[in-house]
């Protein structure tokens, strides 16, 4: 099959960047979207042009590296699918496909489709963990966890930190990412001692990174390749308010 690509090209962070048109004549419906870009890049290298830079690694939908907006949707049109797992059989022969980087002030473009998502790491640094130094752990069965809590924690923990939620959000908010970690750790007994300090610090870091506020449009949950449910944001809000109350109590 043949596809026409409109790709965002930007040499470096300071470059203004623009959409450039390319044709790939020999694509196959069984190709993944990244393999399509591989083919394009081989074409470009042989033609003496600079290949399109894009982040990718595991190519099996779990590392969260791939990050592009395809025809206006982070990770493209398929539900619950990362770009690397999106296959061309979902497009038609002759389609024109627009490819842009994840757009957010907190995710500055490094080159072409590669953005810097270090802000997510810094949000985790602020408190997205349980302090359990190596060796300090009691037996794993010392604290049973009700299955429904464990399941909900897992559902939230499935976040791959790709940033599609931010890319989709009209406000550039990372609330779904934030809520997912708050819910994962807050749902477990091990996460209780730091529950209040965690949410307070992570929310502060989220804002400091320049992510916008949530307006509950739900775009994030639809774009999320791991189907993190929207209610983790409700959980985030609930925990944040509870933490403020607790702080007033102890102050």
């Amino acid at each position: 099959m043949k596809v026409h690509l409109k790709v965002w090209r930007q040499r470096s962070a300071g470059d203004p960047g623009k959409i450039v048109n390319y044709d790939v004549a020999d694509a196959s419906p069984d190709m993944s979207f990244l393999e399509l870009l591989d083919v394009l890049n081989e074409q470009l290298v042989l033609a003496g042009e600079d290949p399109v830079a894009f982040d990718h690694d595991c190519r099996e939908g779990i590392c969260g590296a791939c990050s592009m907006v395809i025809d206006g949707q982070p990770h493209g049109p398929e539900k619950a699918t990362t770009t690397c797992q999106l296959h061309l059989r979902h497009f038609r022969d002759g389609d024109t496909i627009t490819i842009e980087p994840f757009r957010a002030g907190a995710f500055p473009v490094i080159k072409d489709l590669v953005v810097d998502r270090g802000a997510f790491d810094r949000i985790i640094q602020a408190g997205g963990y349980i302090s359990a130094p190596t060796g300090a752990a009691p037996d794993a069965h010392a604290t049973p966890v009700p299955k429904d809590h464990a399941d909900r924690a897992f559902t939230a923990a499935a976040c791959i930190g790709c940033g599609a939620c931010v890319a989709a959000c009209p406000n550039g908010s990372a609330s779904l990412f934030l809520g997912a970690k708050i819910t994962h750790l807050g749902e477990l007994p091990q996460g209780q001692p730091e529950r209040d300090s965690r949410v307070t610090a992570m929310v502060a870091q989220h804002d400091a990174e320049g992510f916008g506020g949530c307006t509950n449009t739900g775009e994030c949950a639809v774009a999320c390749p791991k189907e993190i449910p929207l209610d983790v944001i409700s959980q985030l809000n609930r925990d944040y308010l509870a933490a403020r109350k607790a702080r007033r109590r102890s102050a």
Partner: peptide
């Protein structure tokens, strides 16, 4: 919040249709 939202996306998408958000949202 609107100003923060605007600052959070300084460069807009060339091609973006909202898929989920209701007209109301």
């Amino acid at each position: 919040l609107a100003r923060r939202a605007r600052a959070a996306r300084p460069v807009r998408y060339a091609h973006r249709q909202p898929v989920q958000g209701s007209y109301a949202a």
